[in-house]
Design a protein around this nucleic acid. Structure first.
Lengths: 333, 333
DNA sequence: AAAGCTAGTCTAAACGTTTCGAAGCTGTCA
DNA sequence: TGACAGCTTCGAAACGTTTAGACTAGCTTT
């Protein structure tokens, strides 16, 4: 910028004013500056600008697992909305590991991001302290955290799973295996509660043995399904608390020489693009991924631009049961 | 930092020296500084640091389509390696749109990233100028660009597709439909060349009508497959130049009331986690996604740390044909 | 003719770090 | 005792912007 000013024979203040349009600059000088910029190939240093302005027009985004198509879609949408608004996005994924997560939040805060969107891998005190300590706007997606009073956008997980479980019950299933997500996450807990509630509302006994804990990863799903399928009185249906674990479950079914839906019905949370193309076409609860991403970005932008209410907001969206052909009716014994 | 210095009763130079360990600081002062940092909750401002140091420890990453599991995996690996090395990653995806791509590269350069990893959506002069004009290290992945002399890591696409095509030929297929990627990308061109080469080597005529152009998106695959399947003499096998388009193709097959592999065999580039769980279990050419991501990050880190040769490097990796059950033998007429 | 505007331009101080060179102190050696 | 070395600490300049406030020149108003 100094070079440009020199080349154009003006002060750097004038160059700055011209570039930002913050003050009138005469046509004569304007042309000289433009020419100098072109010739020098000048590009403004956003770092220096950020330092002075105290804003980076960059936001931090951490998700537990970007390989999960659900998160991929949400991330893609967020990125698009924020980019269009002139913000850059710093992405971190932590493989469902809270220690990594804390480090990444520190890294992002350190880089002076203007705001954060977080899909928490789990809750811990370091994160709570980090997030309450900063005055930066934060938006939580997918999972919420106790004791963190920030904007959040979540699914009505209880109803989503309860609906799906009901569907299985109505098909005649009574022994429904459940592959659960981490109890450390709100989604893990709420979804399990939905399963239990549907069971109890229908007068079907809740059997703890039919619930196997996983941590949202494919390998967990495989292990959990194997345990369920090798029970002496194996379940006639299995519900998986997310899409990654259902892959493991399908693999387990195949490895056991069973077939879906003939031998065991399967359904899960989270839709994905492949779900209705191959066989069996999987019955899932689809989340409104675009809406989640869009709303998250919007909530954050509103805060950044100071046009958000003082209190924190919580948006609850609803899942959509996509009935396909991975569940078959069963006459209860 | 000024506050910390004041609280500890030392100069900011000493605080800086203590934090960075760039000079000896007596135990006494060290303790006072540590205490002050804890009490104030001081966190170093990386922006100011970057301005002074001329390095941001941030790298920019643009990919054509993050929803494609291939890119997702690569991005995840890159992110992990770079994070471990203390770098943050700014992610941009441009939905295969070169105009957006150019803007994103500008945005990243503007933000003073230390380097760039790019999976180009396509080639254009703006990008070429942007990238040659900067002195920042750049690594290209998946697709290369003519006239851009930078590090790159690519697949031997020609051989990958030629192998897969050969497999189909050996099964007895002669009319093999090909759903092509954008001819504006090196992958689009090289893969088509592989198809053609295999055909010609086997003495099978190359029929232009059997090649339908797509742009790596699902909708393109659907349209292309529909065109192929409604031909009077429809192909007995279809190869798709990527994984997204194959979904469209499978959908088209179903919508036409056909079945795979009984009526038409299907194979494609790019493996994905679901490919071998549902039916048909899809035959694919798997790319070494982890290796690609790891190598890309490594190449960039080497350049950043000045331990790379002066000339540009090009790594060529190899695909792996995963034979499953989506292709069936066919006695040639 | 003096005073008051206005538009255009500039000077200089900040933003929060790093780092060079200087300064102060202690101890050693001639 | 004085010179010198080594260690610790500090003052101040720099990084590339933005911006408040000062200045100038040309008009308009009284």
């Amino acid at each position: 910028m100094i070079d440009v000013a020199q080349a154009a024979g003006v002060s750097i203040a004038t160059v700055s004013a011209f570039i930002n349009g913050t003050a009138n600059v005469s046509a004569d000088l304007g042309q000289r500056i433009e020419k100098a910029i072109r010739e020098i190939g000048y590009q403004r240093n956003a770092i220096a600008r950020s330092l002075k302005l105290g804003t980076t027009r960059t936001i931090g985004l951490t998700v537990a697992d970007i390989r999960n198509p659900f998160f991929t879609d949400v991330v893609a949408t967020i990125q698009q909305v924020l980019n269009a608004a002139g913000y850059a996005v710093m992405l971190c994924c932590n493989e469902e590991d809270t220690v990594q997560q804390d480090e990444q939040i520190k890294l992002l805060l350190d880089r002076m991001v203007d705001g954060l969107i977080i899909a928490p891998a789990g809750e811990d005190d370091i994160m709570r302290r980090l997030l309450t300590g900063t005055r930066k706007p934060v938006v939580l997606i997918d999972r919420v955290c106790d004791g963190l009073d920030v904007d959040a956008i979540v699914l009505d997980n209880l109803k989503a799973v309860s609906d799906a479980t009901n569907y299985l019950i109505n098909l005649g299933h009574r022994r429904i295996g459940y592959i659960s997500g981490s109890p450390e996450t709100s989604t893990g807990r709420d979804r399990l509660a939905g399963y239990r509630q549907a069971l109890e509302a229908a007068g079907v006994a809740f059997i703890p043995d039919l619930v196997r804990e996983g941590h949202f990863r494919e390998a967990d799903g495989y292990r959990a399904a194997m345990q369920l399928l090798t029970m002496p009185d194996r379940p006639t249906a299995i519900f998986s608390a997310n899409n990654l674990m259902v892959i493991g479950a399908m693999r387990a079914i195949r490895d056991m020489g069973l077939s879906c839906p003939a031998d065991v019905s399967v359904a899960c949370m989270d839709d994905f693009p492949w779900a209705d193309v191959f066989n069996p076409r999987l019955t899932t609860v689809a989340q409104p991924v675009e809406a989640i991403g869009e709303q998250a970005a919007t909530l954050l932008l509103e805060r950044l631009e100071g046009r958000a209410p003082h209190h924190s907001r919580r948006l609850v969206l609803h899942g959509n049961l996509m009935i396909r052909n991975s569940c078959s009716p069963r006459i209860p014994a």
